[in-house]
């Protein structure tokens, strides 16, 4: 394990996501609360990056900016060469559909849709035929080990199974990156390990770039790199060597 200063992180080397001078603040009543301040760093392709830090350090805000569901006050965020801060809202929605797979802490599945229909949902934006959508959704569910739960509603699945369905939904469109906000935060230890195992496999075997926010050190230990945020700034970065 190597601990690096942020300034030592190599840049320009197969970079997928580049943040440059990114600042973000929120208005709380009459007060403006700075969350991120002039953040500059790169995330490489096939990276598995864990973002850690105390509550209020801005890690979820940073994840939201990278995922294109929030916009910075200042600076640019370039993903695969495209500055997403310049995209209008409608284009940004299309960009997210094509490039980002979301994994949320509370799964955020549609309760009225079956596991298969939930996974198929993002594919309805692609123009694929129904048969092909179904085949791909089946495949994604089989990758997370849920081939036998396709017709179950989320309420009929355990937390771990629901999060696996959410992972299948995130990967079904074969996005450029996966963003996960506390993906194990609502799971018991065993389910959390199963989910992390799947995420690690997606990164290792399928080359998926993953950015994960977590409080859990054991979850972060699965990542290739860990970034620590402190009061809206990167404090240090840990490079891990995993087998």
């Amino acid at each position: 394990m190597t601990v690096l200063r942020v300034s030592d992180v190599p840049t320009g080397e197969d970079v997928l996501i580049a943040l440059s001078d990114v600042s973000k603040s929120y208005r709380r009543g009459a007060q403006i609360v700075p969350v991120l301040s002039k953040l500059t760093f790169d995330i490489r392709r096939k990276e598995f990056l864990a973002l850690m830090g105390p509550s209020g350090s801005g890690k979820s805000t940073l994840l939201n900016l990278i995922a294109g569901i929030d916009s910075p006050d200042h600076g640019s965020i370039t993903v695969a060469g495209e500055d997403i801060t310049l995209l209008p809202e409608a284009d940004l929605a299309d960009w997210r559909a094509a490039n980002v797979g979301f994994i949320f802490q509370f799964y955020n599945l549609m309760p009225v849709l079956t596991a298969l229909e939930n996974v198929e949902l993002p594919l309805t934006l692609t123009g694929l035929k129904r048969r092909e959508r179904r085949d791909r959704a089946q495949l994604a569910l089989s990758l997370v080990g849920l081939s036998d739960r396709v017709k179950h509603l989320p309420s009929e699945l355990s937390g771990g199974q629901q999060q696996r369905v959410a992972i299948a939904r995130a990967i079904v469109t074969d996005p450029t990156m996966l963003v996960a906000d506390e993906p194990t935060g609502d799971l018991d230890r065993q389910s959390a390990e199963e989910v992390l195992e799947i995420m690690q496999r997606l990164n290792r075997d399928m080359g998926k770039t993953i950015v994960m926010v977590t409080h859990d050190r054991r979850a972060a230990a699965r990542a290739k790199r860990i970034m620590h945020l402190e009061k809206g700034d990167l404090s240090y970065l840990v490079e891990q060597r995993l087998e």
Partner: peptide, 13 residues
Amino acid sequence: LREYATLKAIGFS
């Protein structure tokens, strides 16, 4: 609202 936000996050208008 959370479901609607999820739909918008994954690309629905």
